[in-house]
């Protein structure tokens, strides 16, 4: 049958669902082993964080899209959690091969890492759905009440109070760890990257400034070429 925009969008969502294990709402045996190998087991903290962020996400999704859509928000969050666990496991497999270590206690107890990784997984889910929403015209009512736009990037950063610079850190590793991402989704993540690099990371309060200050202090002896006018 001919490929219609609706059919293409439905295929993207089905592909995303199909690539995630149906039992993936919990860490796999392999991922649970990484958790257990840690000096401090992060399992409980990971679970608690997901519960807290899940409630926050559903609430904010309902506020943005409408109270009748809270259930859709929960569905998207559940899909995001499955992608989060899958990508985390693949990242740790890669890091184990690269560094020849199995104890990732520091990384796996870093709340910012988990929040950034989950935000990236949710952005992939949201972009897949939003793409379909625009294509099938559900939100395209031509007015200013364009609900689909409200949950697009950088919406997720505000929901999780996440610094754009921290979100930026996970994007490349995420794409490397999840080879089944469609070209459209990769392009979307690259657009997020560019937005962060060009604008969002330079807003007041960004951790980037503190990092630059530290870098300047530690490398004060190095000769830095003066910038061109």
């Amino acid at each position: 049958p001919p490929q219609t925009p609706i059919r293409a969008a439905m295929t993207s969502i089905q592909q995303l669902r199909g690539e995630l294990p149906s039992s993936g709402d919990q860490p796999s045996t392999n991922l649970a082993t990484y958790f257990k190998n840690c000096t401090v087991d992060p399992s409980q903290a990971v679970q608690k964080r997901l519960e807290m962020l899940g409630q926050l996400f559903s609430q904010k999704f309902g506020e943005a899209v409408g109270p009748r859509c809270v259930a859709y928000g929960r569905q998207r969050f559940a899909l995001g959690v499955r992608l989060y666990y899958k990508v985390m496991e693949e990242m740790l497999n890669s890091e184990e091969k690269r560094l020849s270590v199995q104890n990732f206690s520091k990384l796996l107890n870093d709340s910012t890492f988990h929040t950034s990784l989950l935000a990236c997984a949710l952005e992939v889910v949201m972009a897949t759905y939003e793409e379909s929403s625009f294509k099938n015209g559900r939100y395209s009512n031509g007015g200013s009440d364009h609900a689909g736009v409200d949950v697009c990037f950088p919406w997720i950063l505000n929901v999780f109070s996440l610094a754009a610079f921290d979100f930026y850190k996970v994007i490349e590793s995420f794409i490397k760890a999840e080879p089944t991402l469609s070209k459209d989704i990769i392009k979307h993540l690259e657009t997020c990257e560019n937005l962060i690099m060009e604008r969002i990371a330079w807003r007041t309060g960004s951790p980037l400034f503190e990092l630059l200050k530290q870098e300047q202090e530690s490398g004060a002896a190095e000769q830095v070429e003066a910038p061109a006018s």
Binding site: M91, E95, R98, F104, F113, K169, E172, K183, D184
Partner: peptide, 21 residues
């Protein structure tokens, strides 16, 4: 077609980006 440009070096990974050795 669209190809992502990977900027990280082979010796860099998510551990370094979150300051973990």
């Amino acid at each position: 077609s669209h190809d992502y440009h990977f900027g990280l070096e082979d010796h860099e990974g998510i551990s370094e980006l979150f300051d973990c050795d």
